[in-house]
Amino acid sequence: MKQKIVLFDGVCNFCNNRVQFLLKHDKKKELRFASLQSDFAQNWIAENGIQLEDSMYFIDGDKLYSHSTAVLRIIRELGSGWKLFYILSLIPKSIRDNLYRRFAKNRYRWFGKSEVCMIPSPEVRNRFYL
């Protein structure tokens, strides 16, 4: 089975809340997680020669998705009624990504920032790459 890994900003309160949401709603428990600040993410970035922005990313096997496409792909993985949100992919990528970047630019101001990355609970630690 190919890896499905969500890369997220580990000090962003909004991002950490979304990870908690995903953990709760990923009934198949296929999603794995790594903060952008983790050794795993830093090594993956270096090995693949990719320059990442401060954003959420989704690694699906050998494909990397970013910005709004990453969010839509992640939501699609939740299955059931959540898949309906994938219809938003019909909106042109340039418009979706513009809205995504505006939100991302203001997320610390709106939701705050932690000094340290979230520490996963023992129940879900096996779903995180540290």
Rank of each mutant, 00 (worst) to 15 (best):
K2A: 13
Q3L: 14
K4M: 08
I5A: 05
L7Q: 02
F8L: 03
D9K: 07
D9M: 10
F14V: 06
C15S: 15
C15L: 12
N16S: 11
N17D: 11
Q20H: 12
F21N: 14
F21K: 12
F21Y: 15
L22Y: 10
L22R: 04
L23C: 07
L23H: 05
L23S: 07
K24V: 07
H25Y: 15
H25P: 06
D26R: 00
D26K: 03
D26W: 01
K27G: 01
K28Q: 09
K29Y: 00
L31H: 11
L31G: 10
F33C: 10
A34W: 02
L36S: 01
D39Q: 14
F40Q: 06
N43T: 01
W44G: 05
W44Y: 15
I45V: 09
I45E: 00
I45A: 00
A46H: 09
A46M: 08
E47G: 06
G49K: 15
G49V: 12
I50N: 05
Q51T: 10
L52A: 07
L52Q: 04
E53Q: 03
Y57I: 03
Y57K: 03
Y57H: 10
F58L: 12
F58A: 08
F58I: 08
I59S: 04
D62F: 08
K63S: 11
S66M: 01
H67C: 00
V71T: 15
L72S: 03
R73E: 15
R73K: 15
R76T: 02
R76E: 08
E77D: 10
L78M: 14
G79E: 12
S80M: 11
G81T: 11
W82H: 15
L84H: 04
L84D: 04
F85S: 15
Y86M: 02
I87F: 04
L90E: 00
L90S: 02
I91R: 09
P92Y: 12
K93F: 03
I95M: 09
N98P: 00
N98A: 08
L99V: 10
R101I: 13
R101D: 13
K105V: 02
R107N: 04
Y108S: 10
W110M: 07
F111T: 04
G112C: 08
G112W: 03
K113E: 14
V116Q: 03
V116T: 09
C117I: 13
C117N: 13
I119G: 02
P120R: 05
S121C: 06
P122M: 07
E123A: 15
E123C: 07
E123F: 08
V124Y: 14
V124N: 15
V124Q: 08
V124L: 04
R125H: 10
R127E: 05
F128T: 01
F128Q: 03
Y129V: 06
Y129H: 12
L130M: 14
L130N: 12
